[in-house]
Simulated scan of single mutants.
Amino acid sequence: MAGILDTVDQRTQLVGENRLELLMFKMQTRQLFALNVFKVQEVMQLPRLTKMPQSHPVVCGVASLRGQAVTVIDLSAAIGLRPIDTTKPCNLIVTEYNRTVQGFLVGSVDRIINLSWNLIMPPPATAGRGHYLTAVTRLEDNQLVEIIDVEKVLAEIVSYSSEISAEVLDVEVVKMARGMKVLVVDDSSTARAQTEGILTSLGIEVIEATDGARAIQMLKKWADDGHHVPDELLMIITDAEMPEMDGYRLTREIREDPRLRDLYIVLNTSLSGSFNKSMVQKVGCDEFISKFQPDLMASIVQERIRTLMNNS
């Protein structure tokens, strides 16, 4: 795997073009799994681990990586499969999600593939509500690749709160928010639930879409039916990476439609902040929030309401 992540700068050019790259791996079984390369910092053989007493059952221990203590999670056990046998060859995928670094213990690492988001499909309905997949795709040889919902995995290990701090909550703004609507676009049920919890605490009605393609279809239909959509939605809060159409392409599609272009768009993603701030400017989002920050999201929503009220 040496050098597999050496061209990350080149990969940033994929974003905004509705493309992504997936790092594929196995869990000591034949099934292929994948993570978005943008969330991967490095791949290595499993280093020595320090066991942590009273840790979560799927936490293997802590690895010291260049002076940083990184929690190591058995990804196979975390999604309900057999734990990884560390007496056999295995690897550590070091990732950054939601401003934190963690390592995922897997079996063998396969390769990186470059795909269009329209080849990434939502999990089949037969997978049920308890699955740990955010999407699936098929290779040219028809082999299925399962893309893991890491946000759900992490939420089961370290719970995320949707509670807004009392000092952030503006009671007068909340009164004005009653009846306002926000479209939340995210393929992760965990992320949608957390965002909905924040917005409903503000008295806002939440409309959901599970990917950008569904969202743009919904918006265009409302416009076709004669609705002035920018007046009816307070904002759109969208994830970046989603099946079929990512949040960057969704934003571009909205900005290119005269009926929709004035919509206020907030990018809400677990990808790294510095990277996304530049992408916000490139594709035309209004704000960027790293996921699972209820106070920050509430502040941005409340400020948007204040601005609208002041301009009315």
Rank of each mutant, 00 (worst) to 15 (best):
P230T: 08
P243T: 08
Q143F: 00
A127S: 15
S188N: 09
V171P: 00
I236G: 01
S161C: 05
A215P: 03
A223R: 04
A125W: 07
E146Q: 15
M180L: 14
W222V: 01
A215M: 05
T126D: 14
T238A: 01
G130R: 10
E241L: 05
D257M: 10
E167F: 12
E140W: 03
L263M: 12
A166Y: 11
A215N: 03
D246L: 10
D225L: 13
M218V: 04
A155M: 05
L154E: 10
L250Y: 05
D231Y: 08
R261D: 08
P243L: 10
R261L: 07
D257V: 06
R259D: 13
Y132M: 15
V182N: 02
T200I: 08
I198G: 04
A240S: 11
S165W: 06
T200P: 12
E196I: 11
E167T: 14
R129N: 13
H131E: 04
E156W: 00
K220P: 01
I236W: 00
P230I: 10
A209Q: 08
S162P: 00
D224T: 12
L233D: 05
G247E: 04
A166R: 12
V145N: 07
A240C: 12
H228G: 00
D170K: 15
D170N: 15
D141Y: 12
Y160W: 06
K152W: 03
V206D: 02
A166C: 05
V136C: 09
K220D: 10
G130L: 11
V153N: 07
E205H: 13
A191H: 01
P230H: 14
I254K: 03
D262N: 13
L234F: 09
R214D: 14
H228A: 11
A223F: 04
R192A: 06
R138Y: 15
L183M: 10
Q217V: 08
L169K: 13
G247M: 02
A240R: 01
D149F: 12
M242T: 02
R214G: 12
M218I: 05
Y160F: 13
G226M: 10
G197W: 07
G130C: 04
L139W: 09
R252G: 03
G226Q: 09
D225M: 11
V185S: 00
P258R: 10
L169I: 11
I157Y: 04
D141P: 07
I236A: 02
G179M: 06
V184Y: 01
I204V: 15
E146H: 15
D262K: 14
T210Q: 13
D141N: 15
A135R: 07
R249Y: 07
G128Y: 07
E244R: 15
I148W: 09
E241K: 02
L233G: 03
H228F: 12
I198Y: 04
I207W: 10
S201Y: 03
L199I: 08
G247Q: 03
L260T: 06
D186R: 01
L199K: 02
V185K: 01
S159W: 04
E156P: 02
D239K: 07
E241R: 03
M176A: 15
A213R: 14
A191E: 03
T137A: 11
D211P: 00
V150F: 09
